[in-house]
Design a protein around this nucleic acid. Structure first.
Lengths: 154, 154
DNA sequence: ATTAAATTCATACTAAAGTATGAGGCAAAA
DNA sequence: TTTTGCCTCATACTTTAGTATGAATTTAAT
């Protein structure tokens, strides 16, 4: 059953050939009687096979694919941060100061920063104080603001 | 000239018909000589017209278009800030709280905010306290961080 | 090896931030 | 009209942030 479904096209083709041969034989017999019906016969064959060709072509050729490219806008989140290395080196921030700055920007308290970096609260205070000096600010919020403006942090 | 190009298919069709008729006539003459070459003749016609049918079908049928949509990512400059009004209304921040939040994000101290908005320091403290409650944060730096994440402030 | 910068931490202090609570005024909604 | 939410401000208090100073240790460079 599956074989029939899968090879339907080929079976149909065979069947049409068989039918056509029958018609041909019949026409052949007619040809003996009617002497000049030959052109009609040839035309019939031509027509049928052309039809068969068209049908085959339609069935067997894979459909043409028109590839349509649709541009879809995708907002890329926060991909535009480029570290301003010039400013960073100009300010002369040390690595620890940068870590503290980043943690401050993340909204952590000095105590939390100390825990995160395994340091004492006083050390964090020292670092942040020096950081503020270098950034020429008075408060952590200002530091974050300025650092963001200078493209030192995202 | 344009006519030729545009109706090339039809002209080709006509030409092949003419050629075929010539071949047929020639074969007809051959038939008188060779008596039983009839089946071969019919087969030739069948073959040719089937080929013609296939060719015609390919040329003349409009292509079946399988539209393949290819999504192309277009990077949109994420530089412009779009206020997340849904979040803003969900949080229920009052206008004063928003002003204070903005000032905090600008790196101002409570005292400076009070001066900017012509209010007392205590009022600013009250506003910021309520603001922190609504934003579910403990510190002003956290408030700025969260507000930025929620697209409430640029 | 010596210098210089960076890191760590401490103490002591001041300043600012944040919490809790209450209260008066005001405008819009029920 | 009463209620409700917002704005304002105050007092009192706790917590966190920030400054100043000094010192020991580590690390990198001269």
């Amino acid at each position: 059953m599956k074989f029939i479904i899968r090879n339907r096209s080929i079976l149909l083709y065979g069947a049409s050939l068989a039918v056509l041969l029958l018609i041909m034989k019949w026409l052949e017999w007619r040809l003996v009687v009617l002497d000049h019906a030959f052109e009609l016969y040839a035309g019939a064959i031509a027509l049928m096979f052309m039809a068969l060709g068209i049908w085959l072509s339609r069935k067997l050729t894979q459909p043409k694919t028109n590839t349509i490219i649709v541009e879809k806008e995708v907002v890329v989140e926060a991909g535009d941060f480029i570290l301003n290395e010039a400013e960073l080196s100009r300010l002369g921030l040390t690595s620890r100061e940068m870590e503290v700055l980043q943690s401050i920007a993340d909204g952590l308290s000095n105590q939390q920063i100390a825990e995160r970096l395994f340091l004492s609260l006083n050390t964090i205070k020292t670092h942040s104080s020096k950081l503020f000096e270098k950034l020429e600010v008075q408060r952590r919020t200002q530091a974050v603001e300025k650092a963001r403006k200078l493209k030192i942090i995202p």
